[in-house]
Structure formats: structure tokens, C-alpha cells
Simulated scan of single mutants.
Amino acid sequence: MIDDSAKAYLHNYLQHLREAMLAKVDGLSEYDARRPLTTTGTNLLGLIKHLATWEARYFGEVFDRPFPEPLPRWDVEAERLADMWATEHESRTDIVDRYRRVWAHSDATIKALAIDAPGHVAWWPRPDVKLFGVLVHMLAETSRHAGHADILREELDGAVGTDAESMALQEHDPTFWAERRATIEHAARAADPANA
């Protein structure tokens, strides 16, 4: 049986991941926080903006508790992917503060509703859902993007960890990681003689 202890567990884990996302932009320049680091333009501040948009939608309109601020639309072509990057007119503070306002709104929904409260996700093939399913979905979505953020931040400045403290207390120095990478590269090449 799924009960309030399951709801609390999922909610606490979601909060941990939210904080981890914000830690990934701590100490970075404006440019590094928002610059595209993949072919598709993935960037740290855009991931936070994206998570804020979709968390607001999932814990808002899905349960008839709309977030009180405008959101980019998923069903309007001109607004698709607008949540994946920050314009020059959006400050880091604006985006981070909005994410925190979304948390408060989402937390109020999670607190107010039973774990089996019904919701409706209009963009899903099976749109009738329960709060439990949405909690699991947002946990998976946030976890997925936290993993992206881990890799992006490591590429930017070598920082690893899930919070500001662990990112500041690096267990190994750059020499250790260079040697480790060389060992892994050697093993990869040895496993495929065509690349040796």
C-alpha cells in the first residue's frame, strides 16, 4: 500500500535533487551558467528553467492548481524549447527565484493532496493519473537533468558532487583524474583493436 510515508520519501528526495540542481550554478560566471555545452545547446541555467516550467505544470495544472505565473506552452510551436535556455534578459537570480517559487507551489500541492489524488496530464497518452505517479515522474525528470548537470559542471571546471559543500571538497586532484582517464582510455582502445 502506498501511504503518506511513501509521499514524504519521494518528496524529500525531490527536494534533495532540486537543491543539487541549484548547486550546479553556484560559483559560475553568467556565461558559464548559460552557455551551450552540447550540440543541442544544453546548458545549466536552461536545465533549471526547464525543470521549473515542468514542475509548475505537473504540480499545478495537472491537479487544477495552476501556477500563478505564465509558463511557456508545450503545445504552441513558437514556445517549444523556450524553457531550455535563458535569454540575455533573464537573470540567473530571476530563474533561480522562480524555481524556488515553483517549489513552494508544488510543495503546497503535495502537502494538500492525498497520494492517490487524481490528476489529468493532457499531453500524456493515458492522461488520468494519481499524485503518486506525478511525484515519481518529476523525481525521474529531475534526477535525469541532475545527471546532465553533473556532467556539464564537471566539463566546465571539474567540480563534482551533489551540493556546494561536496563540490568544494574534491577528494582527488587533477593529476589523479588525468591518470584515471588515461587508464580508461587505454582499456577502451585495447578492447577495440581497430582504434588502437
Rank of each mutant, 00 (worst) to 15 (best):
Q170I: 04
R189S: 14
V25C: 08
R181D: 13
G119I: 08
D83N: 12
W85G: 08
E90C: 06
I151T: 11
L139C: 00
K7L: 04
T93H: 12
A178D: 13
R144S: 03
A159E: 15
P70C: 01
A122N: 12
E61A: 11
G46A: 07
A8C: 04
L139R: 00
G46Y: 11
V160D: 05
S166E: 04
F176Q: 09
W103Y: 12
K130C: 00
R80E: 10
R180F: 14
W85I: 01
T109A: 15
D97H: 03
H16S: 12
D173C: 05
P66C: 13
G161P: 03
G60H: 01
A114F: 04
L44C: 09
D26R: 12
W74Y: 13
N12W: 08
Y31D: 14
R34T: 13
A52F: 03
Y31M: 06
A56Q: 07
V136K: 05
R189Y: 13
Y31W: 05
A23T: 08
A114E: 06
S29T: 14
I95E: 13
A196H: 05
Y31P: 00
V121R: 11
V136R: 06
T183W: 08
V102Y: 02
D157S: 14
H148F: 07
A196T: 05
A108E: 15
S106L: 00
K24C: 08
Y13S: 13
F176W: 14
R65E: 04
A188F: 08
R98A: 10
N12A: 15
H137K: 06
Y13M: 09
W123S: 12
L71W: 06
A112M: 06
L81S: 05
E179I: 01
E185Y: 07
W74T: 03
R57L: 09
